[in-house]
C-alpha cells in the first residue's frame, strides 16, 4: 500500500516553465529533461542510480537499455515522480529539471506534473471500464464534463493511437475485452488524451506478440512528431528501430549516451559493445 505520499503543497506549478504545448520556442532539439548528477535510493542506504547526467531533447525518442536491475526503469519513474508512491524512495543527490523546473522542488504539484508527463506501462493496464471511459478518464479527473469536448478528445486520441478504426463501433465495450496489443494502444490513447509534453514508456512491448509490437513501434515513430518520448526496452532491435538517442545503463550508472546509430554501430565503451553484441546481460 502506498502509505506515505509526500505530496507538495497544493499550490500549482510555478507559472513560467510548464506551459501548454504551443509555447513559442518549440523547435526540435530543445532540452526538455535535464538530469544533473542524480543519485537515487529506495531505502536511503544504497544508491541504485549513481551520478546520472544526461539531457533529453524535444521530439526525439530516447531509448534506455541495459540489463535487468540497472536502474533504467527507476530513472524513468523519477521523471513523473511515480517513485513517490514507494515509501522511502528519494533522490539523494542532484536535480532533475523538466521544462526548466526542478521537479523535486517543494513548490511543484506532483499531480500537475503528471498531467504533463504521461506514462505507458510494461503490462497494459486499461481500467475495467468502457473503451470510451478509459480514454476520457484523464479528462474527467480534470473536471471536464462537456460531452462534445470529451467525444472529440476520445476520437482524436484513439485516431492518434491507431485504434479508432478497430473500436469506433464499440466504444461502450469493456476495455478489458480487447486483445493485448489493442489494450496497450488503448493505454497510449488514454495517455495522449490529456496532451502531455512527454510520454514515458516502460517496456511497452514486452508483453506483446511480434505483430502487435510492430504496430506499437510504428505508432511511436508517428507520435514522435508531437511528443517527446522516453522508452525503456530490453529489446535492442527495438531501440535501434525506434529511437534517435540511446542510453546504456549498467549497475546504476549511465555508461554511454549517444545517437542510436553511433551506439549500435561504433560504441565508445567496451561494456556497451559487449551488451549490444549479446556477450552478457
Amino acid at each position: 500500500m502506498e502509505t506515505a505520499m509526500p505530496e507538495a503543497p497544493p499550490e500549482t506549478i510555478p507559472a513560467a516553465p510548464i506551459e501548454p504545448a504551443a509555447a513559442p520556442p518549440d523547435s526540435r532539439g530543445d532540452i526538455v529533461v535535464e538530469i544533473d548528477d542524480v543519485n537515487f535510493s529506495y531505502d536511503r542506504k544504497k544508491d541504485v542510480l549513481r551520478d546520472i547526467t544526461m539531457d533529453i531533447r524535444r521530439n526525439e525518442v530516447t531509448a534506455f537499455i541495459g540489463p535487468s536491475g540497472c536502474g533504467k526503469s527507476t530513472l524513468l519513474r523519477c521523471f513523473n515522480r511515480m517513485n513517490d508512491l514507494i515509501p522511502g524512495a528519494a533522490i539523494t543527490k542532484g536535480r532533475i529539471r523538466i521544462l526548466d523546473t526542478n521537479i523535486y522542488d517543494p513548490a511543484v504539484d506532483v499531480i500537475e506534473l503528471r498531467k504533463h508527463i504521461g506514462m505507458v506501462f510494461q503490462k497494459y493496464n486499461p481500467f475495467p471500464k468502457s473503451i470510451y471511459e478509459n480514454v476520457a478518464y484523464g479528462l474527467r479527473i480534470q473536471g471536464i464534463r462537456n460531452k462534445s469536448v470529451l467525444d472529440q478528445a476520445v476520437e482524436e486520441s484513439l485516431v492518434a493511437a491507431g485504434l479508432w478504426e478497430e473500436v469506433k463501433d464499440r466504444l461502450d465495450a469493456s476495455g478489458l475485452g480487447l486483445s493485448g496489443g489493442q489494450q496497450q494502444r488503448l493505454c497510449i490513447a488514454r495517455t495522449i488524451a490529456v496532451q502531455p509534453r512527454i510520454i514515458l514508456m516502460d517496456e511497452p512491448c514486452s508483453a506483446l506478440d511480434p505483430i502487435s509490437t510492430t504496430t506499437i513501434e510504428d505508432l511511436i515513430t508517428r507520435l514522435k512528431d508531437q511528443y517527446t518520448i522516453v522508452i525503456v526496452t530490453h529489446n535492442m532491435q527495438q531501440a535501434a528501430r525506434v529511437s534517435d538517442k540511446t542510453a546504456f545503463f549498467y549497475l546504476g550508472e549511465l555508461i554511454e549516451f549517444n545517437d542510436t546509430l553511433q551506439i549500435f554501430s561504433a560504441p565508445h565503451k567496451r561494456a556497451t559493445e559487449d551488451y549490444i553484441s549479446g556477450r552478457f546481460g
Binding site: N80, M82, I111, L113, R114, F121, K123, F127, P128, I141
Partner: peptide, 20 residues
C-alpha cells in the same frame, strides 16, 4: 497497475479511490 495508471494520469488519491 490500475492505481498506478490513474496516478500517472494525474489523478489525486481521492479521485483514484472513487473512480478506479
Amino acid at each position: 497497475s490500475f492505481t498506478e495508471a490513474s496516478f500517472a494520469l494525474g489523478a489525486s488519491k481521492l479521485q483514484t479511490i472513487l473512480r478506479v
